[in-house]
Amino acid sequence: MSDMDRLRWSCRRGLLELDLVLQRFLNEEYPSLGAEQRETFNRLLRLQDNDLLDLAMGRADTSDKEFGVLVNLMRK
């Protein structure tokens, strides 16, 4: 099963901004993540659209350290 295809579809969201952020992340950051961080990314994708976008845009912060690392990459 193609993990990447499944992920690509999980990055389809209701907010355009999030589509754009996640598409970039998937293409540019995801390939160099380790197995654990990939798992964390999967967990991150389970967040609500608005919560995830607020994190990505720096409008909110997370106390989850594992999330924090990925969120910083998203904010790049």
Binding site: R12, R13, G14, L15, L16, Q48, D49, N50
Partner: peptide, 12 residues
């Protein structure tokens, strides 16, 4: 639905 219901575009 193509996506989970609460990820529909209405969320915007």
């Amino acid at each position: 639905s193509k996506v989970f219901p609460t990820r529909s575009h209405t969320v915007a």
